[in-house]
Simulated assay, not measured.
Amino acid sequence: MRGGRHGGPFAIEIDLGEGPRRGGGGRRRFDGDELRLILLKLIAEAARHGYDLIREIEARTGGAYAPSPGVVYPTLTLLDEMGLIEQAASEGTKKLFAATPAGEAHLAEHAEKVEALLARLTDLSDARARGEGGPVRRAMHNLKAAVIGRVSQGAETETLHAITDILDDAARRIERL
């Protein structure tokens, strides 16, 4: 197989910013302390359960980010153990959480940081609305799927060379834009 200046047919990893995150690898949008503050703030606004928090963050980012349940639920447990939230009366099986007076005081103490974190949520939404990388990211995913699909079918050397030439040509054309 021949790899051009930009790598072979498998070297098409390009970081154009992150799309929706639903687990898996990649960097986190918010560290643990930041996510705790965001969740606490949202719970202080209205009693919520875990899935509702995930949906609310996704809505506030315009779909650009949704924390995974594997991060949200342990964080809720921690907030509960810290005495910042407590289980509220709920209908059904989902645990509904409300902020405690200690949680409200914690938010007041960190009000400036909380506002900055909420602004970051809005910034993610604004960037998504502007389409920063969106159509390009979609096209890259389509390209990646097409290349991997074709190569995994057991393409012959001639086909692999043709794919590599197409990718290298596309890279050169984009660089000239």
Rank of each mutant, 00 (worst) to 15 (best):
residue 123 D to T: 06
residue 123 D to W: 09
residue 124 L to Y: 15
residue 124 L to M: 15
residue 124 L to D: 11
residue 125 S to P: 00
residue 125 S to M: 06
residue 125 S to R: 15
residue 125 S to H: 10
residue 126 D to S: 06
residue 126 D to K: 11
residue 126 D to A: 11
residue 127 A to P: 00
residue 127 A to W: 06
residue 127 A to S: 08
residue 127 A to H: 05
residue 127 A to G: 08
residue 128 R to K: 13
residue 128 R to A: 14
residue 128 R to N: 09
residue 129 A to D: 00
residue 129 A to L: 00
residue 129 A to C: 00
residue 129 A to Q: 02
residue 129 A to P: 00
residue 129 A to K: 05
residue 130 R to S: 00
residue 130 R to E: 08
residue 130 R to F: 01
residue 131 G to E: 01
residue 131 G to W: 05
residue 132 E to H: 11
residue 132 E to W: 12
residue 133 G to T: 04
residue 133 G to Q: 06
residue 133 G to Y: 10
residue 134 G to W: 07
residue 134 G to P: 00
residue 134 G to K: 12
residue 135 P to H: 03
residue 135 P to G: 07
residue 135 P to W: 00
residue 135 P to R: 07
residue 136 V to I: 12
residue 136 V to F: 12
residue 136 V to H: 08
residue 137 R to G: 11
residue 137 R to D: 00
residue 138 R to Y: 04
residue 138 R to H: 09
residue 138 R to P: 01
residue 139 A to R: 08
residue 140 M to C: 04
residue 140 M to Q: 02
residue 141 H to N: 10
residue 141 H to G: 04
residue 141 H to D: 09
residue 141 H to Q: 12
residue 142 N to H: 05
residue 142 N to Q: 07
residue 143 L to Q: 10
residue 143 L to W: 09
residue 143 L to F: 11
residue 143 L to D: 05
residue 143 L to G: 08
residue 143 L to M: 14
residue 144 K to H: 04
residue 144 K to E: 05
residue 144 K to I: 01
residue 144 K to S: 03
residue 145 A to H: 07
residue 145 A to Y: 07
residue 145 A to C: 03
residue 145 A to S: 14
residue 145 A to D: 15
residue 145 A to P: 05
residue 146 A to Q: 05
residue 146 A to R: 02
residue 147 V to D: 07
residue 147 V to A: 01
residue 148 I to V: 15
residue 149 G to Y: 03
residue 149 G to E: 04
residue 149 G to T: 09
residue 149 G to S: 10
residue 149 G to R: 01
residue 150 R to C: 02
residue 151 V to D: 01
residue 152 S to M: 02
residue 152 S to P: 01
residue 153 Q to H: 09
residue 153 Q to V: 05
residue 154 G to V: 08
residue 154 G to C: 01
residue 155 A to E: 07
residue 156 E to R: 06
residue 157 T to Y: 03
residue 157 T to L: 10
residue 157 T to P: 09
residue 157 T to G: 06
residue 157 T to A: 15
residue 158 E to K: 12
residue 158 E to P: 08
residue 158 E to R: 13
residue 159 T to F: 00
residue 159 T to Q: 15
residue 160 L to D: 02
residue 160 L to V: 06
residue 160 L to W: 04
residue 160 L to M: 05
residue 161 H to T: 04
residue 161 H to F: 09
residue 162 A to P: 08
residue 163 I to H: 11
residue 163 I to L: 15
residue 163 I to T: 10
residue 163 I to Y: 10
residue 164 T to S: 12
residue 164 T to N: 10
residue 164 T to A: 14
residue 164 T to K: 04
residue 164 T to F: 03
residue 164 T to Q: 14
residue 165 D to A: 15
residue 165 D to M: 12
residue 165 D to I: 11
residue 165 D to W: 13
residue 165 D to T: 13
residue 166 I to H: 10
residue 166 I to L: 15
residue 166 I to N: 04
residue 166 I to V: 13
residue 167 L to D: 06
residue 167 L to G: 11
residue 167 L to E: 02
residue 168 D to A: 14
residue 168 D to R: 12
residue 168 D to V: 09
residue 169 D to Q: 14
residue 169 D to C: 11
residue 169 D to G: 14
residue 170 A to C: 10
residue 170 A to F: 15
residue 171 A to H: 15
residue 171 A to Q: 11
residue 171 A to K: 14
residue 172 R to T: 02
residue 172 R to N: 05
residue 172 R to K: 08
residue 173 R to N: 02
residue 173 R to M: 10
